[in-house]
Nucleic acid binder design. Sequence first.
DNA 1: CTGTGCAATTTGATCGATCAAACTGATGCC
DNA 2: GGCATCAGTTTGATCGATCAAATTGCACAG
Lengths: 353, 353
Amino acid sequence: MARLPTVTDVGHAAGVSRQTVSNVLNSPELVKPATREKVEAAIASLNYRPHASARRLRTRKSSTLGIRLDPMSNGISGSVLDRFLHALTEQADARGLRVMLFTATDPEDEIRQISRLRDGADVDGFVLTSTFYEDPRTEWLIENDVPFVTFGRPWGIDDLNDPLHLWVDVDGWSGVHDATNHLLESGATHVSYLGWPSHSGTGDDRRRGWRDAMTERSGLAANTIDRLNLEAEDGVTEGSSALRDLLDAGIQIDAVVCASDTLALGAMLATRAGVPVVGYDNTPVADAIGLSSVEQPLTEVAAGALDLLLGPEGREIVGWSEQSTEPRHRLYRPRLVVREPTAISLTRSDTSR
Amino acid sequence: MARLPTVTDVGHAAGVSRQTVSNVLNSPELVKPATREKVEAAIASLNYRPHASARRLRTRKSSTLGIRLDPMSNGISGSVLDRFLHALTEQADARGLRVMLFTATDPEDEIRQISRLRDGADVDGFVLTSTFYEDPRTEWLIENDVPFVTFGRPWGIDDLNDPLHLWVDVDGWSGVHDATNHLLESGATHVSYLGWPSHSGTGDDRRRGWRDAMTERSGLAANTIDRLNLEAEDGVTEGSSALRDLLDAGIQIDAVVCASDTLALGAMLATRAGVPVVGYDNTPVADAIGLSSVEQPLTEVAAGALDLLLGPEGREIVGWSEQSTEPRHRLYRPRLVVREPTAISLTRSDTSR
DNA sequence: CTGTGCAATTTGATCGATCAAACTGATGCC
DNA sequence: GGCATCAGTTTGATCGATCAAATTGCACAG
């Protein structure tokens, strides 16, 4: 196999020097149009491609960003991160960036991996997903001045106006708020919320969206609303039994809003046919069984993440300190996908144990 | 931020030359143990990491492999490729390889992307998924002597004994065969098969698994078996209506084996509760609704793919021509995950249109 | 006519590693 | 002693690109 052409070969073919070829590729405005055309013709005829590693060695930039792929996505909703990954890859490609994957067993290991990738100059920026309160990863990245953006708010004191790092996120409050309002408008009054326990920022945010909508429009007393507030770990069985407990207690429920499609599936199993349920994430399952769901605009989220990382110039991945005074975060509003509410329902069959 | 240490720095600290440091890293057997320890100590104390791009420039190897991420995975079963990606990343990591993603709009575009990544020395091997009859990608890769392995048989004349390239695959015949036998053993005689139309190698292979099992054990006449053979595009609605047509025609059906969990979900919607259905891929949905399903051993598949690509030495990605006489493919047997067959069933509700 | 300024292009040095060849001692053999 | 051998180590060259500084050519003011 013949040696691949280099800038020198192209320059030779076009009758110019290697640097001029380099300029045509990186700073076309420096080159006289006539020369540029000659060079471009030579590039095309030789089918020249810049050698990425050589460029990286010299520029100390890799135009590659790293993202961690979780060991094994959890349940149905795991596909959200996969879809985000799809979107990120496409958007990165459109901006001339590459996406490199890595795995890690825990946050400390992830820091080690990040460090390795960065020191090897393999990657010059990172996208973090599934961030949490006082995430050691973000602290480490800030300290070490590594460019990164998180999908998920820092959930700190004043994350909106004075964040410590770049972030993009989806406004879960508004998604659940819209969903709840939609159900209230359709005639329901007792709309239950089935969400995660504990205090993940995302979970609390979504729950607040429901509570605010209920307080504003349901006309129910606060303690009645409280009774409709359910907590369950993210699983079909868990969601199902949480809701069934409520029903067994004789509480009236007209509709259910859930923090995930997984919980929503559980809710559908527990409720009678005809009780509308709204999920979250709009996974393929929701589509398959005709479940209304809140869809996150992942393509826009991915695009936003990259735009923040690339900075206003949009040419290179820049660190936090070099950022301009532009907004340093983006919050996207999700969209409620309404499906025929009761076209299909799930029921326990007779032979069930 | 201080400049990162280089081999020269390490050599200086250890009192040896840069090349010795390089040897410690790449050919430790050439270095005297005492010297090696000194160098290793220096590496640790300086926290030295080799600069990946510099190494790649010199060696013309990237230790990175590329894999295409489909634009948007189709339906429920799309998650299989995602899970394969997870497994591949983990296995690659264990072998010192990195995984880089790319996207493409069609096979021609994919070839263009592959060419770009390879010319840029970003990637030195590829993993192809979703291969099909006379795939232009494999032909191009073979012609251009690019190392690659496919997840999916070439489905050529003699793919098993004299394949044209490296491949790994899962034995769909055996998976469906096992599933069908399982149902027959549970007392069913009229086991229907709901698979894809057309002539994808994978689809035909799975269908054959059912037909062979039925011929061997059901005791039904060939034309009776034929009537139980259904075709539908991969969708819940499509699967559902195909099966309903059969039921409306008054054909007896004791159980259904499907080519995917998506079709299986459709089948569950169409059949009465109590008719066991087996899906394929063991997606999260199957787990959620208690659907038996055939699980592909994706971790092993990923490991096999890498082992083939790395060759017997296991040190570097080698092209086809340099392969030894070792087997050039791996076929893995899937495993039937049996779940409580009718714990939960899906039925159309009253308010359905 | 000379020199300044500027645009366009070229040349030399460099990024950090590895390859290939040369070197250094120590050993052993005739 | 003289010389080949060999393990262990070092030096010079190189991969392909970009940066920084030097150079060329040309227009124009003094």
